[in-house]
């Protein structure tokens, strides 16, 4: 049942990038541009962190603090962007009508929205943050466990961020019913306020 609900997401994504099972120039181009950006990010990060690293102890501490802040920022941003898209994914999706009319348990529906929201909100941030964290591994000459753990975190962080974000969204929407779009806009600005506040709090290490 859970697999069935994810079918439009899986097939839709496939049809978008590989129409008719082929690999068109557009998809190849997109992939190349993405890889180039990743590579550029990696090289820039290696240079910057390498520069800090080559300085005295202070430089090393600074770059480590930067690493912590980067993870925190990433986590907070993922929660925020998930909350924004969870409102529309859970309550305003156009396919809600046909999916709700079908004999589908609500838990399966939540699971489907959870998986798709995680992928939609985090794929880009994760794709572009892995090179940065990879650069840290390179400069600090990390051991062999660093790399599998990095990949594991790249999956676990978005999953937990979306979990928290969706929980907050459902709680907020139940407190203030998102019946009208106006309410939703108010809600979004509220989110943004909380987000700014959190960022300021966390940026004071």
């Amino acid at each position: 049942m859970k697999g069935a609900l994810l079918l439009p997401f899986r097939l839709g994504t496939r049809n978008r990038f590989f129409p008719g099972g082929s690999l068109p120039l557009r998809s190849i181009g997109l992939l190349l541009v993405g890889l180039l950006i990743c590579l550029a990010l990696y090289l820039i990060s290696v240079r910057t962190i390498g520069y800090f690293h080559a300085q005295n102890e202070l430089g090393i501490i600074l770059s480590l603090k930067l690493l912590q802040m980067a993870w925190l920022m990433l986590f907070a941003m993922l929660i925020f962007s998930c909350m924004v898209s969870a409102v529309s994914a859970l309550y305003l999706s156009q396919d809600n009508e046909i999916v709700f009319a079908a004999p589908v348990a609500p838990t399966d529906l939540y699971f489907m929205r959870y998986v798709t929201t995680t992928v939609y909100t985090s794929w880009m941030m994760m794709a572009f943050s892995i090179p940065v964290f990879g650069a840290y591994g390179r400069v600090f000459a990390a051991g062999p466990w660093f790399w599998p753990l990095l990949l594991f975190c790249a999956v676990a962080i978005p999953l937990s961020a979306t979990g928290i974000g969706m929980l907050l969204t459902v709680a907020l929407v139940n407190l203030f019913p998102a019946r009208r779009t106006k309410d939703i806009v108010v809600y979004l600005s509220l989110c943004f306020g909380i987000f700014i506040y959190l960022i300021f709090r966390m940026l004071q290490p």
Binding site: L7, P8, L11, G12, N15, E97, I98, A101, V104
Partner: peptide, 24 residues
């Protein structure tokens, strides 16, 4: 429904498959 929503990025056949699997 009066204003049905269909997934733009699915083919007609895939949509039918989806509905069939929802209703088992």
């Amino acid at each position: 429904p009066d204003r049905p929503y269909l997934y733009d990025k699915l083919t007609g056949h895939e949509f039918l498959q989806f509905m069939a699997s929802l209703y088992e």
